[in-house]
């Protein structure tokens, strides 16, 4: 039992971060029906930014850097939408273009970082990196706890933004019914741009929450791509709150699987669960059934 809890608790903690990573992807899909394959690479870029702010002479604590990371990636996301994504929105014929455009952008990010910083792994180690507390027999890592709390805080802010602000409501309206939203006088291009910016920024914040215990390479995104997709599909494609629940579940499964199998294959369980969900409940655990025609 104690062994189980020793895996369950860190699983919930890391799951909170996965939830944050996935909520950005879910928001973007929900609003503009684009599966952003570059999402994990925005996360990678954010990790490098946190590392640069920490190790590059500023010595800025990665958790304190979060507001800066959020703003930078909000703007970067909006810029990327304005320069690229908006040209492939909408029509069914653009489906293929969306896939290859976002894959291509992700690859460009990876290789530009590779050229600039090489593939050497980078670490961000603040003074409390190895600190932690025992609650009973269970060790709770300080940085993972902070990362989890940060994710919960951002989730609460996101909830307020989507439900209380005018822009947030426009985003929800667009995600509910794109066409009806335009009839209600919602500027869909602007809403998309903001949603893409916010979606990228959420994942970026998730990335900076990770840096204290995840080493950074240009290709670190690969490890998270399927984790993010799995979380989003688990919660129902396009549902932000579903993505949150999905993220926590993925974190738990990944961690608890280590009771039975080696940590090296923990992602096999995630991928297998991802497939299982796609096959048996493609609309997600709580997904709505869509009409056929």
């Amino acid at each position: 039992m104690v062994e189980f809890l020793q895996f369950l608790v860190p699983g919930i903690l890391i799951g909170g971060v996965y939830a944050l990573l996935a909520s950005g992807l879910g928001l973007i899909f929900g609003v503009m029906r684009v599966v952003n394959f570059a999402q994990a690479d925005f996360m990678m870029l954010a990790m490098y930014l946190s590392w640069a702010l920490f190790a590059g002479g500023f010595g800025l604590d990665p958790f304190l850097a979060v507001p800066a990371v959020f703003v930078v990636f909000l703007l970067l996301g909006m810029a990327v939408h304005w320069m690229f994504i908006r040209f492939v929105i909408g029509r069914r014929e653009n489906h293929d273009a969306q896939v290859i455009l976002t894959i291509g952008l992700g690859l460009i990010f990876q290789n530009l970082i590779l050229i600039r910083y090489s593939s050497e792994p980078r670490v961000v180690a603040p003074s409390y990196a190895n600190a932690g507390d025992f609650i009973g027999d269970i060790f709770i890592s300080r940085v993972r706890l902070y990362a989890f709390l940060l994710s919960v805080l951002v989730a609460a802010l996101l909830f307020l933004f989507l439900n209380r602000s005018r822009t947030g409501r426009a985003i929800r309206a667009a995600s509910e019914n794109w066409e009806a939203a335009t009839y209600m006088g919602i500027d869909i291009d602007r809403t998309n741009r903001i949603a893409f910016g916010v979606g990228v920024a959420l994942t970026a914040v998730g990335g900076s929450a990770l840096v204290t215990f995840q080493s950074i390479t240009p290709f670190v995104g690969f490890r998270f791509v399927v984790v993010m997709f799995a979380a989003v599909v688990l919660g129902g494609l396009g549902s932000v709150s579903g993505a949150f629940v999905g993220g926590v579940l993925i974190g738990i499964i990944q961690s608890v699987s280590q009771v039975w199998t080696s940590a090296a294959v923990k992602n096999v369980w995630v991928f297998a669960l991802f497939l299982l969900i796609l096959y048996v409940r493609p609309n997600g655990l709580f997904g709505k059934v869509q009409r056929a025609i």
Binding site: I100, G104, L105, G106, I108, N111
Partner: peptide, 9 residues
């Protein structure tokens, strides 16, 4: 990557 982006656009 550049080929994919250019073709998409």
């Amino acid at each position: 990557a550049a080929a994919l982006v250019l073709v998409a656009l």
